[in-house]
């Protein structure tokens, strides 16, 4: 609804860089999840690296090529690859093959439901498998750009060109289509199930209030939004794509309609990834110059986790479920763990 105008200020800040335990992953990393106490770094191709509480690194082969997408419910990580396979890695480090595309198409997107159902897409087709039920599929009007399960019920949002289809895989009814011109590449439901937000190909977000399909345009980003994270309790949505963390307010029934976003932690670099703390009003932000900051949402107070190295952008950030550990990795595989 509003454009924001990134300002700039820089102050000297507290550093915890000396408390970070460095981890050399030794391969490009694209995403990162905790399975129990283990931090799992998903590589750009073929392998994941599991770092246990003692700091030991073990590699597990998961794909025969590029790893294109990953999602986790905390118990396992699902990954899709350009080998046409969808696999799951559990906390014991065991890999299970969940699906193989018969035409060996790329598995572009994956999503996991808290009750164990999962979805993936290849080209225009989205698939869902839940419990003992048969696999269901849905053909979107164009290539699927993103997948997300609604927090309640078995409902899948399928982002595509010119909108999002909301699909109930276990119902015969045609999916409801939320239209908005342009290419939608990422999608997320607010934790209270009231809003749906997409990250578009152009540097903007689009949102819908699901009760009445009111539109919310969230623009002003200098770059594409690649990372979105809901704050604890879903009060705000933190996003990358600007030289500050952009936080859109979702606490009221109108969401960000007519409101300005909060702009936190400005730096002379682009925010590349954001991860909100699971319990407290704190977030971690990674930047294109390699900097990582922890930011208190209330007042924007910053703590330095990793100093800029001017080379590889931060590629992934993750908190463990208790919120006592933060793990990070840069695109080049330089990674670290911070115990709080």
């Amino acid at each position: 609804m509003k454009e924001f105008d990134p300002g700039s200020n820089a102050a000297s800040i507290i550093s915890v860089t000396d408390r970070v335990r460095p981890v050399a992953i030794g391969m490009p990393v694209t995403s990162l999840y905790f399975l129990g106490d283990d931090a799992v770094f998903v590589g750009a191709e073929e392998n994941v690296a599991i770092v246990n509480a003692a700091g030991e690194i073990s590699r597990v082969a998961v794909h025969g090529g590029g790893i294109l997408c990953a999602a986790s419910d905390g118990a396992r990580i699902l990954m899709g690859g350009d080998d046409g396979k969808l696999v799951a890695l559990d906390a014991k480090g065991e890999v299970t093959l969940l699906a193989t595309d018969p035409k060996r198409r790329w598995i572009d997107n994956v999503a996991v439901h808290p009750d164990g159902a999962f979805a993936w897409s290849a080209g225009k087709t989205a698939f869902v498998r839940s419990g003992r039920a048969e696999e269901k599929s849905f053909d979107a009007p164009s290539t699927v750009g993103g997948l997300a399960f609604a927090p309640k019920g078995l409902r899948l949002a399928v982002a595509h060109y010119n909108g999002v289809s909301l699909w109930f895989p276990n119902m015969a009814a045609k999916p409801e289509v939320l239209e908005w011109a342009g290419s939608h590449l990422g999608v997320t439901f607010s934790p209270d199930n009231k809003f749906l937000v997409t990250a578009m190909h152009e540097p903007a977000l689009h949102g819908w209030r699901l009760a009445d399909i009111r539109h919310m345009r969230m623009t002003g980003y200098p770059g594409r939004v690649r990372s979105m994270s809901w704050s604890a309790g879903g009060k705000a949505l933190a996003t990358s794509g600007a030289d500050t963390v952009i936080m859109w307010p979702f606490a009221s029934k109108d969401g960000p309609m007519g409101k300005e976003p909060a702009m936190l932690a400005p730096l002379p670099a682009r925010v590349s990834v954001v991860a909100c703390h699971p319990k407290q009003d704190i977030l971690a932000a990674g930047y294109s110059d390699g900097t990582i900051l922890m930011v208190r949402l209330e007042d924007g107070a910053e703590i330095l986790v990793r100093r800029r190295n001017g080379t590889a952008p931060v590629a992934a950030l993750a908190w463990n479920s208790k919120g006592t550990q933060l793990a990070f990795a840069a695109e080049d595989g330089d990674a670290g763990l911070l115990e709080l």
Binding site: E45, D108, T143, G182, H201, E202
Partner: peptide, 30 residues
């Protein structure tokens, strides 16, 4: 898939291949 997408920038001839954006992004992992 030869998907031609219009950009939302008010320029009518400003079209891109949406599938290509996705494929190139995937290829860059390799």
């Amino acid at each position: 898939d030869e998907e031609v997408f219009e950009m939302n920038n008010g320029c009518v001839c400003c079209t891109v291949r949406g599938d290509l954006v996705r494929i190139l992004e995937g290829l860059m992992k390799r």
